[in-house]
Design a protein around this nucleic acid. Structure first.
Lengths: 202, 202
DNA sequence: TAATTAAGTAAACAATGTTAACATAATAAG
DNA sequence: CTTATTATGTTAACATTGTTTACTTAATTA
């Protein structure tokens, strides 16, 4: 390990620490509030120090987005893929997990799915690519149901997006400060799940 | 009318012109790009001139949000309220109109429904208040269907939010640069409408 | 041990919203 | 009609933002 003595001119592990601090920060506050000064102060360095490890602030944000997608996928994919549960159960649990992940990580959710940094996201994630593991798992779930003749044999891509868009809409209203929605989000989710299921099954 | 001679020290109608320019601007570009310099250049004034008419940039944005809600309501409400059409037809047309309004006014849509300026929106619009005319009209449509025994007599507020959240999710994915979604948005909307309808009717 | 490279600093940039001090034109008061 | 006041502009300055440049120091390599 490259352990360095404290208060030395060189920090020792600045890149990793910057990412770590940034990721902790966005759990609590919006990406807008994450300035280079915040990072500099938290690491006892200067604003410009970051440029020895990232070519721009956007490059750091790109890493946060990557890690954000990983965490999101890690929360959702295992539920969707859990073959020990039946399809309905997996759908219900995954959709519930989706909303709660958004509620628990509102700033990260907005960062990875929102417009502001879409130009960064697009560079390494599109729905039709293999990077979008959560979406792929959802589509696979639908196709599994189609093979078992439980789910209508329509275009699974379209079916998956209908589900995703619905959950994304509810999540967004909740975390974007429509508090009247948040107050009854479980009722809304139940109704939404029921609707979506009716649309899927025969 | 207060018509003033050109190139005079006083502009004559700066407040109205600032709002007009800002509103035109957001039709084309994101609110992030609307700087005081843009407004100053467009009106041949200075950055600080705006402060004689608005106490801050946020106050100007507040006016844009207000006008944005008005335009949105003007597009949706007449369709939902059109008693010459049957309920299903109004639902289909209104939801189609919703998505297309978002597609046509992506920056304005994001401004009025997004998180960034939620603290401004909240000050004069909440779903449960009377300001949210579009949502009220949707809820009224549902209640009309309940009286006619077409729509399930569940809580209309919840039913309305399920619909709204679904449309909001699809709109957001489309305008927030998920291009794979945009390409087949009509298929998705059709499926979504069908699902939502099944959830509503007996 | 010397040379090179990696990784920090400080100072300066332009752009941002905002404020303060000032200038001018329109309006109200005498 | 002149004068005082108010409304509405300007310019200059601020702190904050991301970023770049020139410099410094430590770690690594020759």
């Amino acid at each position: 390990m490259k352990t360095m003595k404290k208060n030395s001119y060189h920090h020792g592990n600045l890149k990793a620490e910057l990412l770590s601090i940034a990721f902790d920060f966005i759990y609590r506050e919006d990406i807008d509030k994450l300035t280079l000064k915040v990072l500099a102060d938290a690491t006892n360095t200067s604003r410009s120090a970051i440029y020895k490890h990232f070519s721009s602030k956007d490059e750091l944000i790109k890493e946060i987005i990557k890690k954000g997608f990983d965490e999101f996928d890690n929360a959702i994919v295992p539920i969707l893929n859990d073959k020990s549960q039946d399809l309905k159960e997996r759908f219900f649990k995954a959709s519930y997990c989706y909303i709660n992940w958004a509620k628990e990580n509102p700033n990260l959710y907005r960062l990875i799915f929102g417009k502001k940094y879409a130009y960064i996201r697009e560079a390494f994630v599109t729905i039709r690519s293999e990077n979008c593991k959560g979406f792929i798992a959802l589509k696979a779930l639908i196709e599994e149901g189609q093979k078992k003749k439980i789910i209508k044999s329509e275009d699974s891509f379209t079916q998956a997006i209908v589900i995703w868009a619905s959950l994304h809409g509810l999540s967004s209203l909740i975390i974007d400060c429509f508090n009247d929605v948040n107050e009854i989000y479980e009722d809304i989710l139940n109704q939404m799940q029921s609707n979506l299921l009716k649309g899927l099954i025969y």
